[in-house]
Every structure is written in structure tokens, then in C-alpha cells.
């Protein structure tokens, strides 16, 4: 069996040794790669924003009316929560850059808890909709009074916020993984690539919500 290509040498905080690339180049390559991945996520949501834009134009009154069923206070609260979690995620990167692994743990844990709070609020929102019947499969949904244009709005609403919530969940998983690494004092000013990449992903989750919130909750 050939030697493992990725071996950790030196003490904790040392970058992994790769056979094909030096550690500094590896950092820049990984960051660039993550930005490319974020580009794909932007394009993923672009389709949803485009679909929303064209149907909003086509079904303007129905969309306006349907939007009143959303609770802007909960949406606003979620916005503030994500903005705050984004701030702590950025601070976590700083903590890694000054060799403070516990700082990484603390800040990413705050971001994680914010993500959890976001999902809990989303759960309350969805279950309220289900109770009121604005949910596929309910009696109101299937009845004749629920126009196709309404279904269109809510269909887009659930797909957009649902996909976003899935990304929040994935982001939380990534944060958790980095938290565990940081607890073992893995990072230092010489190596904090996973911290930065996890933070970048989390910021994207925040970015998407920055646009989702006004479009879905506030447009009238």
C-alpha cells in the first residue's frame, strides 16, 4: 500500500502534507474552489428567483394576496438571527487566524445555535400554514377556492424556503464538523482552511435569505 498522500506532520495546527501541492498553495486553491462551489449555489437559486420573478409579474394580485399569509415578523426575526450567525462565523475565522481554537468553537457554536433557531422558527411557520390549509394535500389546498395561482405562489414559497432550509441544515453539519476539529486544537494561523470554507458556506446561506426575506415576506 503506497504511503497515505495526506499525512499530518508537525504538531497540532500544522497544515496537512499533500504530495501534489504545498500548504500555502493548498489554502488558496481550497478557497478558490469553495468560491466556485458558491457560484454553483448562486446559479441553483437563480432559477428559483427567476421563476418567482416571472410568476410575480404574471400573477401579481394573487401573489400579493398570498404573501399576506406569511408572518413578516417571524421572517424578520429569522433575518436578524442569520445576520448575527454570519457575524460570529466571520469572527470564528479571525479567531483561527490568531491561534484561538476555543474562539472558533465558541463562535461557530453560536452560529450553529442560530441555525437551529432559524429551523425551529421555520417549523412553526410551516406547521401554522399546514393548520390553515396553505399546504399541499390539505383540504383547503385541494378545494376549488384555492386558485392555481395561489398554489403556484405557495409551491414556489415551499421550494425556495425548503431548499434554503436544507442548506441551513447542511451548513450546520459543516459547522459541527469544524467545531469538533477545533475542539481538538487542529487549527492555527498556519492552517485554518476548513474554518474559512465552513464560514464561506454559512455566509452564502445568509446571503440567500437576505434576498428571500424581502421578496417573499415584504413585497406588496
Amino acid at each position: 500500500m503506497a504511503e497515505s498522500v495526506y499525512s499530518k506532520v508537525g504538531g497540532r495546527g500544522a497544515p496537512p502534507v499533500y504530495h501534489h501541492i504545498d500548504p500555502i498553495n493548498a489554502y488558496h486553491a481550497a478557497k478558490f474552489g469553495m468560491w466556485l462551489f458558491l457560484a454553483t449555489e448562486i446559479l441553483l437559486f437563480s432559477v428559483l428567483f427567476t421563476a418567482f420573478a416571472i410568476y410575480n409579474w404574471a400573477y401579481f394580485e394573487s401573489f400579493q394576496h398570498a404573501a399576506t399569509k406569511l408572518d413578516w415578523k417571524l421572517g424578520g426575526l429569522n433575518t436578524l438571527i442569520l445576520l448575527f450567525s454570519s457575524c460570529t462565523a466571520a469572527i470564528a475565522v479571525y479567531k483561527a487566524q490568531i491561534n484561538d481554537n476555543q474562539g472558533v468553537v465558541k463562535n461557530f457554536t453560536v452560529s450553529f445555535i442560530c441555525g437551529l433557531a432559524f429551523l425551529v422558527i421555520k417549523y412553526f411557520e410551516y406547521s401554522a400554514k399546514y393548520r390553515h390549509g396553505y399546504f399541499p394535500g390539505t383540504e383547503l389546498w385541494n378545494s376549488a377556492e384555492f386558485s392555481t395561482q395561489y398554489k403556484n405562489y405557495f409551491g414556489l414559497y415551499y421550494v425556495m424556503t425548503g431548499l434554503h432550509a436544507l442548506h441551513v441544515l447542511i451548513g450546520m453539519g459543516v459547522l459541527l464538523w469544524v467545531i469538533f476539529l477545533a475542539r481538538r486544537e487542529r487549527f492555527s494561523e498556519k492552517y485554518y482552511t476548513p474554518v474559512e470554507l465552513a464560514a464561506l458556506y454559512w455566509h452564502l446561506v445568509d446571503l440567500i435569505w437576505i434576498f428571500l426575506f424581502p421578496l417573499l415576506y415584504l413585497i406588496d
Partner: peptide, 22 residues
């Protein structure tokens, strides 16, 4: 113009997140 105002402010917020946080 409502939608434009909301989207413009969102764009400014996004730019701040991009430029500083990211």
C-alpha cells in the same frame, strides 16, 4: 418601485456580507 427599493437594500446588505464577512 417598491420591489426595486427592497431589492436595492438587499443588494447593499449582500454586498456588505460579501465584502467584509466573506
Amino acid at each position: 418601485v417598491n420591489i426595486l427599493i427592497a431589492l436595492s437594500i438587499a443588494t447593499i446588505k449582500a454586498s456588505l456580507v460579501l465584502m467584509y464577512f466573506m
